[in-house]
């Protein structure tokens, strides 16, 4: 019972409180300990990355087994995954092979996936942006103005969209975002505090 429930709560409390005290008070003991805790945290987090790697292998090897070796997608994923690791670990991150994978597979595909949202978000906006009430109208107008003001063509179509975009971004947006950020931070602090004092044990697998 102690090891399963109380010890994790104590560990979370000690780590959280130490890190917080070290930040707000100039006490050398807490600062040194907090530095060490943060270093340890980054080491443990690396092991957590391994969990993800194991899950990928488990999921896709199960897919291959179920499809009796005919699941080309999972086979391709596992091959790319293993080849990247082998190249990165044995040839090094500075090797030509690793750079090739990074520059010609990871970056262009990632960038294409990232830009794919431009099409989806554009069509979704076209279908859902309706000036049904004041709030929706504000959203529609600011969204359209910012989109127009950010491209040279927009400036040709609607010349005032450029200064309007600048004003929206540096004034209206700041006002709304600040309230959101402060309110969000207060909520975030409340959740963090619940984790640190052990009220939110589900975060680390407790009840």
């Amino acid at each position: 019972m102690f090891l399963k429930k109380t010890l994790p709560t104590i560990i979370a409390f000690v780590c959280g409180v130490t890190v917080i005290i070290a930040y707000f008070f100039n006490i050398p003991f807490f600062q040194t300990t907090a530095q060490e805790i943060l270093k340890w945290q980054s080491v443990i987090a690396i092991f957590a990355l391994g969990l993800g790697a194991i899950n990928i292998i488990r999921v896709h090897s199960t897919n291959i087994r179920r499809a009796k070796g005919k699941n080309a997608y999972s086979i391709a994923l596992l091959i790319t995954f293993i080849v990247t690791i082998v190249v990165g670990v044995f040839l090094g991150q500075e090797s030509e092979a690793y750079k090739f994978i990074f520059d010609y597979i990871n970056v262009p595909t990632g960038s294409a996936i990232f830009s794919l949202l431009a099409f989806y978000i554009g069509t979704a906006a076209y279908r859902s942006f309706r000036a049904k009430n004041i709030e929706a109208t504000i959203l529609l107008i600011t969204g359209c103005l910012v989109m127009l003001g950010r491209v040279p063509l927009g400036a040709k179509i609607l010349p005032f969209s450029v200064p309007a975009t600048d004003w929206i971004m540096s004034v209206l947006n700041v006002g709304g975002q600040r309230g959101l950020m402060i309110a969000g931070a207060i909520g975030f602090i409340a959740v963090s505090l619940r984790i640190v004092i052990g009220l939110e044990r589900t975060a680390y697998g407790g009840d």
Binding site: F114, S115, L116, L117, A118, I121, G122, A125, I134, E135, A136, I138, L139, L140, I141, T142, G143, C144, L145, V146, M147, R150, V151, T165, I168, M169, L172, N173, G175, G176, Q177, G179, L180
Partner: peptide, 18 residues
């Protein structure tokens, strides 16, 4: 209303970024 303006600005920015 202010938050809607901020969301609109964030939306426009996201679209243009993409």
């Amino acid at each position: 209303h202010f938050m809607m303006a901020a969301f609109g600005a964030a939306f426009g920015n996201t679209v243009m970024g993409r």
